[in-house]
Design a protein around this nucleic acid. Structure first.
Lengths: 337, 337
DNA sequence: GTGAAAGCGCTAACAA
DNA sequence: TTGTTAGCGCTTTCAC
């Protein structure tokens, strides 16, 4: 016989039903805003719910619906970078916004770049998750594996895999606009500290630089490659060695730009008087350093917010339209150029 | 009659049991590392688990155990600050570390400072959570309400409520050490940009400053109050007006210190030549700005990591010992003092 | 050491 | 429009 453990614990559907004088099913319908419930019943149930302070049990619901109410923001980076680069918290924040009205929890998951895609795919498929937003800019393997898993996933950053949803910055345009600004301001001997060429964003930003330089009839070959870290901005020293007459610099992100400025200063070059300089990301620190950095916007929270909207569509079985979103970047002029 | 939906979906305990030739209960015991299972059985079950790639269903488990496997990091701040101040992502990271070996998800929850404590307490009690780490520095109301709810909660930052677990920086000592460093370096006319006096940390840091000044026989009354924002660092201008001979400055956090430096520069004061300056937080940007900031450590990730350890104890019904942890702060000397 | 069986709180056919 | 009922996958007494 059913043993009723009517402990004075948290109220259940059963309790509400009893108090409202209806069946569990009816209460369930009210809670889930199902149609075909009489107006009067709804209010009666509603009152019972309020009175008891009833809240549906997530686990029980998940068990039967097979939806967990959890989505993940999966970041494929080293711990270190993730909590040192403001890009990530900002990105997480955007995802939070997208799911805030839904009763959905957004968890953060971390994966090391070297990790086997299978480990992450397994996490996705473990049934703990309804879907994921993936922040990764490390080659297409992961995206391919995830796409194959048929779980709802949206990438931030072009993974270069057909059929995969993604949101990305128009990196070529960003680099072009930045470089054109340098040219328009009178710089002619312009170099670039490029991003890592094993990342799409790094390649595209370099392409944009070359496009703009070529279009202006200037020499686009003054290049060094960085890895987006502040330290790699110091490689500007090599450019300076080879091209002491350097008067403009497009740096593929703000962190490297800040690193570059200090090296320029150590070499007696003033920014913007001797060398004019534009970065990318329009990060917080761009406005804090001296001289303040002219930079291209790269609003990570907006990217993930849009990715979140796409993910919601995907999770409800709707194919998002369009499947990929590429957002423009805007020039923010400050002191450095 | 029981309809077996043996869909080719994810494997269940049942599937594992069948394959291993044992009962569900036995598999459950193996999965949960319960004692009293024959060695041979364990290995057989283990093999079946591996073969099927079985993963326990969280929802089903939560339903029966009444544990959700979810803890929250509850941040009581405006959205804005939360994703602009590196303190928070770092803090979150620490919590992640504390729970990483457990199969526990760490979610972030946000609450606006003005919000009614009841809303947060209700969230705590909703049964969606096993416990929470609360980052709040806005008065004791919330802590009182939470303490009353008897849910496992650990605060980061002294909530000033008896019996509540918390981890905090030794703010008085931090301020004292910083001020003593200024004095030891030769500064005598020292002012402070204090933190907000409605926060414990703000009050304690001011107290520490006053203690050190008084102990050295110096005038501790050169004070303005900021709100920890970069903009409020500009209030150094007021100090400069009243005390043009200012030669030292203790600023209650780095953000304000950075704001102060730019105003000092605009007023023709060089750091550290004319005014020596120490901040608190030892933030990333402290090392990035020019001149680099001398600062007191305030390792938020360590705080939350320790808070996480305490929370684990609390959740397993053990009273953590000690109940409150106050961590020392260390001086990191850079260019500004 | 192991199995049988009950039941956690909920949703979703199906009946009425 | 509402109630009845059968499970979702798991843990946990209680027998054996």
């Amino acid at each position: 016989m059913p043993r009723i453990i009517s402990a004075p614990g948290v109220p259940t559907l059963e309790d509400v039903a009893k108090l409202a004088g209806v069946s569990r099913a009816t209460v369930s319908r009210v809670v889930n805003a199902a149609p075909l419930v009489a107006e009067a019943t709804v209010t009666a149930v509603q009152r019972a719910i309020d009175e008891l302070g009833y809240q549906p049990n997530r686990a029980a619901r998940a068990l039967v619906t097979r939806h967990t109410g959890v989505v993940a923001v999966l970041v494929v980076e080293t711990d270190d970078l993730v909590f040192r680069d403001p890009y990530f918290p900002q990105a997480y924040h955007g995802a939070l916004q997208a799911f805030q009205e839904l009763d959905t929890q957004v968890v953060r998951a971390m994966a090391r770049p070297g990790e086997k895609p299978t480990a992450m795919v397994r996490y996705l498929e473990s049934g703990h998750l309804d879907g994921a937003i993936v922040l990764s800019h490390h080659g297409p393997e992961l995206a391919q594996a995830m796409e194959a898993s048929r779980q709802p996933v949206v990438f931030v950053g072009n993974p270069e895999v057909d059929g995969v949803c993604f949101v990305d910055l128009d990196n070529r345009q960003a680099a072009r606009t930045a470089t054109e600004h340098l040219i328009a301001g009178g710089s002619r001997k312009i170099a670039t500290i490029a991003g890592p060429q094993d990342m799409v964003s790094g390649r595209h930003r370099l392409e944009g630089f070359v496009q703009a330089m070529t279009a202006a009839g200037l020499d686009p070959t003054w290049q060094v490659e960085g890895d987006y870290s502040g330290a790699s901005g110091h490689r500007v020293a090599e450019l300076l060695d080879k091209h002491p007459d350097l008067d403009g610099l497009f740096v593929a992100n703000d962190l490297m730009a800040i690193g570059a400025i200090s090296v320029l200063r150590d070499n007696g070059r003033l920014v913007p008087d001797d060398v004019r300089l534009v970065g990318v990301d329009n990060s917080e620190s761009a406005a804090q350093v001296s001289p303040q950095l002219t930079s291209m916007t790269n609003s990570s929270d907006e990217h993930t917010r849009i990715a979140g909207e796409m993910l919601k569509k995907l999770m409800s079985g709707v194919r998002p339209e369009p499947l990929t979103v590429v957002l423009p970047s805007e020039l923010v002029i400050r002191e450095s150029a």
